[in-house]
């Protein structure tokens, strides 16, 4: 954030806090509410799978591409999942072109962490010839419009796109991208991320841009369908109490269930 923006954010912070004190949020939501969520799959025909996700005005697009590659030496009988996302200048006046900054890298790594550690795919089922040939599954997520909480939006879009994906035809080691089979990816788990922002003593779900701009701290939980946890990332210079974290974990399990209801699984 530029110094000028930070001074403006300080002024906005007082206003946002005043609204929070009266038990409301600046966009009229309750503390524990998501904005309106929309998930649309199959939006990019050239991709093996794709999904457009909107959470309020935050809009992200995820696409899945498959290719054949060699496995990592330490996991010869497993395919690989490669998740990436970047904050592109298309999505906000604040994002600049050029190499990814720390926020962009953090977002990519945290979204990747939930999907990888949550074992979204059964990687062994992506093996074609052990030690030689495996499917590589690339998930690339583009933020189209930034209005806060990219973590949850990107993770939801990635999972929706993976669920939407079908293997392309494989003919003597050649991938025929034009012909999709009806075979889905070997989905093993449904991990999703749920993010909260802390502003002063108030904790709100699904922060919008203005709230993220003034928040003291942020916490993201990666939650699987059985309620177990696969990723956490705390951000910001603020802090959380132990009890707050445990309470938010329980709430995040419920909210992840709610997010999962948008995926028709």
């Amino acid at each position: 954030m530029r110094p000028r923006d930070e001074i403006l954010a300080n002024i906005k912070r007082n206003f946002i806090l005043e609204v929070l004190r009266s038990n409301k949020r600046i966009d009229g939501r309750g503390f524990n509410d998501y904005r309106k969520i929309e998930v649309k799959t199959g939006v990019i025909k050239k991709a093996e799978g794709s999904a457009l996700v909107r959470i309020g005005n935050t809009e992200v697009l995820a696409g899945v591409k498959l290719s054949i590659g060699t496995p990592y030496p330490d996991t010869p009988n497993e395919g690989a999942l490669i998740v990436n996302t970047e904050l592109v200048p298309l999505a906000s006046a604040m994002f600049e072109p050029g190499p990814p900054d720390e926020n962009s890298i953090e977002l990519a790594r945290v979204v990747d962490r939930a999907l990888r550690e949550g074992e979204v795919l059964d990687l062994e089922k992506l093996c074609i010839v052990e030690g030689e040939k495996v499917w590589l599954v690339y998930v690339d997520i583009y933020s189209l419009n930034y209005d806060g909480n990219l973590f949850d939006a990107c993770c939801l879009a990635a999972l929706a796109a993976l669920l939407d994906a079908r293997f392309p035809k494989l003919e003597d080691d050649r991938v025929i991208y034009e012909e999709k089979t009806s075979v889905r990816l070997p989905i093993k788990n449904y991990p999703l991320e749920v993010t909260y922002a802390k502003i002063d003593e108030y904790i709100v779900l699904d922060p919008c841009y203005e709230e993220e701009e003034v928040m003291d701290a942020r916490i993201t939980f990666g939650i699987k369908q059985d309620g177990s946890i696969c990723a956490i990332q705390k951000g910001g210079r603020g802090s959380f109490k132990r009890e707050e974290i445990l309470k938010l974990y329980d709430n995040a399990v419920e909210k992840a269930k709610y997010l999962r209801s948008f995926l028709n699984i």
Binding site: E117, G227, S228, I229, C230, I232, K234, S239, F240, I245
Partner: peptide, 12 residues
């Protein structure tokens, strides 16, 4: 708590 990260799999 000023830093908290986690990766892997744990129950509540």
């Amino acid at each position: 708590i000023v830093l908290l990260q986690m990766d892997g799999n744990m129950t509540r």
